[in-house]
């Protein structure tokens, strides 16, 4: 299984990673009660040493 060759295994792996990521994202969003504002309010300030709360 090589990244430098076109092969179906790599495509399947990419799709699996994508789906796992989507599931994790949905789980995390539901843990945040799907509050998009909660996420957007951190937008761009996640790494800044600012005390948000």
């Amino acid at each position: 299984m090589s990244l430098l060759k076109f092969n179906s295994k790599m495509l399947v792996l990419a799709l699996v990673i994508l789906v796992v990521g989507a599931v994790l994202m949905v789980i995390a969003l539901s843990l945040l009660n799907f509050d998009i504002n909660e996420i957007l309010s951190h937008f761009g300030t996640w790494y800044a040493p600012i005390n948000l709360h």
Binding site: L13, A14, I17, V20, G21, A22, L24, A28
Partner: peptide
């Protein structure tokens, strides 16, 4: 939040490989 970002990063990596 880390989990959310981790999920997004996996989506991006998957798209990158695709």
């Amino acid at each position: 939040y880390a989990l959310l970002q981790f999920g997004i990063s996996l989506i991006l990596l998957g798209l990158g490989i695709l």
